[in-house]
Write a protein that binds this DNA or RNA. Structure first.
Lengths: 140, 140
DNA sequence: TTACATGCAAAGGGTTTGCATAACT
DNA sequence: AGTTATGCAAACCCTTTGCATGTAA
């Protein structure tokens, strides 16, 4: 099914395995998920798969550019498809994670590039704050 | 020396202790530092202080608003004085952490507030990317 | 003499490593 | 055969918890 994965691996002398396909599938299905969540999902299809393999595979998929990880602040990072570019907003009151288009960061990225030569990676860390709902609840 | 710490604690029925003063001092001296680094610094003056106490004290100092922590992405968070407001930029090539004024984020914060009611906490997570030096080195 | 703080040890999440086995090429 | 991939167990880092002791109001 995933010939692009197979051939990308092959180019680098790496092998296609059921585990690798399953991990990639899980990342795609779950959207943004922690290694633990991905492992659980994979184990629905193949219970014997070990979490070590999940970690190693996520690493590999990231190196070959198919997935990326984002630090939401606390706890484990979450993995998602490389294509799924968005900025994560984490509410530190309710913990909710929402997504917002990366264009929001364009002006900031341009300023950083210009003023300090820093090339911003918009997706790698989440922005933290308080979401609208929690602000409203707090105001009461 | 630190009457404001003493009285803030006292208002809440909490006690001033040498450990608490030492931890606050260390946070101030080190700028932005992990609990482990803070512990090492504290132990220069008082070797018996346990890292558990450092964690508990950082928690306490954060609750009473004297310090804050920032997630740099990987690994342990770093603590700094509340007053020292700045945005952290972390280079994921060389790991260097630099600081930049929070005003840089004002426009973004305003947009987020308006468009999604999200109140951005500019200091709580670092921005990630590649610093000027590493970009130059990479270009070679 | 009661509440709060500390130190120590143990447990807890999350992740990595070493090594033997298994599966490709 | 020789390389690569997996599973398992153990180690690792960072942090929290339980409990006994210690210390201040």
């Amino acid at each position: 099914m995933d010939t692009s994965l197979r051939s990308t691996l092959h180019e680098r002398g790496l092998r296609m395995t059921p585990q690798r396909q399953l991990v990639l599938d899980a990342v795609r299905e779950l959207g943004h998920a922690t290694p633990e969540q991905i492992c659980t999902q994979v184990q629905r299809a193949a219970p014997a798969v070990n979490i070590t393999t999940v970690y190693r595979t996520l690493d590999l998929l990231e190196r070959i550019g198919l997935v990326r990880h984002t630090h939401l602040g606390h706890g484990a990072p979450t993995y998602s498809e490389r294509e799924h570019q968005h900025v994560h907003l984490v509410c530190h009151s309710c913990g909710e994670v929402s997504e917002t288009p990366t264009e929001l960061m364009d002006a900031l990225a341009a300023r950083l590039r210009q003023e300090s030569g820093f090339e911003l990676d918009v997706t790698h860390v989440a922005l933290s704050g308080q979401c609208g709902d929690c602000r409203a609840a707090n105001a009461r």
